[in-house]
């Protein structure tokens, strides 16, 4: 019985591999037998979905077999550490979100950019200040209310060392307000608090609040972006208010820093090819992750991360 099952499963897989191999062999010289994708987040979340969507696309392009391992504990620090300690042969990848850099700024993450090299950034979501429209209609309303009741205004967000918190701290610093931040364990609890009227506002990404925006129960009043978003031209931005704060949650891929640059380039090229594919863009559109262009190559991504890290560290210090 075991034999027949094996034949059933292995047969078609082998056949498919044999068919696919010659066609793809020219694409890249880097074709490891198997790879490991460490996910610095729990199963089922945004970063996990991102990884599992990419997995078959990357397998096809590098002609390999990828095992996905979720290491959500401690803001994903274990995923960064396992990748940094892996053999530098390019077969271990770390799929991470902005938490990589925010937890570093908060002193939780001992693995820095000296041990991990960014390969590519694939997504760049837009941070929003979201309010309950029953309480506040526009950014002006909110700001007037906040100036009057500054220390009573409470903003919810997810986690203490997150991009939500960094955006909040940045807003407080640049706008001269003195708002309070309450970290919740997950987005859902923060959203429930906003819907129930227990907090005055919430930091969240645009991709996460679509349903509530359509039903009119939540209203984003400030986009952390340089220019107004094409899809949401009515939402004012931080930069037009004179606040230099442009971030949101980002998702990308990291690799052991000792890896041969040629291999890193090969993997980066594979990711670029995935990013440009229709299949990936359909996924990005469906998950509302295409509001802002996501792609950054290895060098640009490193520069962006270093800039963010310096800014976040300063915010944490000033607090």
């Amino acid at each position: 019985m075991h034999n027949s099952i094996r034949k059933l499963v292995v047969g078609p897989v082998m056949a498919a591999m044999a068919l696919a191999a010659p066609a793809l062999a020219q694409d890249s010289d880097f074709q490891p037998e198997k790879m490991t994708a460490f996910v610095a987040a729990g199963a089922g979340g945004g970063t996990d979905n991102f990884t599992r969507t990419i997995q078959p696309m990357l397998e096809e392009r590098l002609n390999t077999k990828i095992t996905v391992i979720n290491l959500p504990s401690a803001s994903g620090v274990l995923a960064h550490q396992r990748t940094a300690n892996s053999k530098p042969d390019g077969t271990s990848l770390d799929f991470a979100s902005s938490t990589f850099i925010t937890s570093r700024a908060a002193g939780q993450n001992p693995v820095g950019l000296d041990k991990l090299t960014p390969v590519a950034r694939m997504q760049s979501d837009v941070m929003m200040l979201v309010v309950n429209p029953e309480k506040h209609e526009t950014l002006e309303d909110f700001m007037a209310y906040a100036r009057e009741n500054g220390d009573k205004v409470v903003i919810g967000g997810t986690h203490a060392a997150s991009v939500d918190r960094m955006a909040f701290l940045g807003l407080n610093e640049q706008s001269g307000l003195n708002l309070n931040y309450i970290p919740y364990d997950n987005e859902g609890s923060a959203a429930a608090s906003l819907l129930g009227g227990n907090v005055d506002g919430m930091m969240n990404e645009i991709s996460a609040i679509q349903g509530y925006m359509e039903s009119g129960e939540m209203k984003p009043i400030l986009a952390f972006a340089a220019e107004r978003l094409e899809a949401y031209p009515d939402i004012p931005t931080t930069v037009e208010n004179g606040w230099d704060l442009t971030f949101g949650n980002e998702r990308g891929v990291f690799i052991n820093a000792e890896t041969d640059p040629a291999i890193i380039s090969a993997i980066e090229a594979a990711f670029k090819d995935i990013f440009d594919s229709e299949e990936y863009q359909t996924y990005a559109k469906r998950s509302n992750l295409d509001v802002r262009p996501g792609w950054l190559g290895s060098d640009d991504y490193r520069a962006a991360l270093e800039k963010d890290l310096a800014f976040f560290e300063k915010l944490m210090e000033d607090m």
Binding site: S73, V77, L78, Q108, A160
Partner: peptide, 20 residues
């Protein structure tokens, strides 16, 4: 583990595994 409100690390004795 990590303090849920401030992000401070508590009682982990330096172990990354206990941070979560």
């Amino acid at each position: 583990g990590i303090d849920p409100l401030t992000g401070t690390i508590r009682f982990t004795f330096g172990s990354l595994h206990l941070m979560g």
